[in-house]
Amino acid sequence: MSSIHARGVRKSFGDLEVLRGVDLDVNPGEVLCIVGPSGSGKSTLLRCINLLITPDEGEIYLDNIALTDPHIRPEWVRQQIGMVFQQFNLFTHLSAKKNVMLALRHVKHLDRKKAEATAKAQLGRVGLADKLNAYPAQLSGGQQQRVAIARALAMDPKVILFDEPTSALDPESIQDVLAVMGRLGQEGMTMAVVTHEMGFAKEVADRVIFFDGGRVIEEGSPDEIFERAGHERTQSFMKKILR
């Protein structure tokens, strides 16, 4: 089981300072939920962790490997750290199976048979064994998101980052996706999840972080953050989303 450690991560877009020195740990096998208002920099933080964005300052470690070391290839980092997006971002021109196979073929260089077997196994794992040949446009949002999770899992990542994976879904699909994520957490996958799903956070998260203005404001157990937040900003945010 792997861990992520961020130290003093800063990132600006032009004059806009989005991350203002973030320290964050995702311990081995831990499910960490990140909550915080829109525009606070949560997505930017996740994108920095798998180097979709290069941080301006600070270090990010996967176990004890400094990912921010210029000698590390970003492609390698992204194989180790899976990512699931709010908008699923499935490859629209490929079937569910081919979506999962693409990186297996082009990054892991598996032969077609092996890639196909892995794809089938991973799609089975997220409950989509009967949708192998369906195209994204033929799937519901919840099914698409589960394909996206299978696509990330197929690379055998050490950590998976989820960026509001259920915010674009209807209530029924939300439960399907959360169930898959909950199972992953129980199996010991190290996960960082940006979400506003209280139920999920309370049930699955080991720790919750309240993030605002490009900084970690407060962290603690789900109960501590949702019910007994110490900071006034956390309290007022919780009031808003619990209403």
């Binding site: 992204r78 899976g82 997006f85 490859f91 693409l102 082009h106 990330a152």
Partner: peptide
């Protein structure tokens, strides 16, 4: 989002061009 997803699974830029 399409190229970002390809990036996120470690497919190189050039290959992403051809396969995505």
């Amino acid at each position: 989002g399409q190229t970002e997803a390809a990036d996120a699974v470690g497919i190189s830029r050039l290959r992403t061009m051809f396969v995505v």
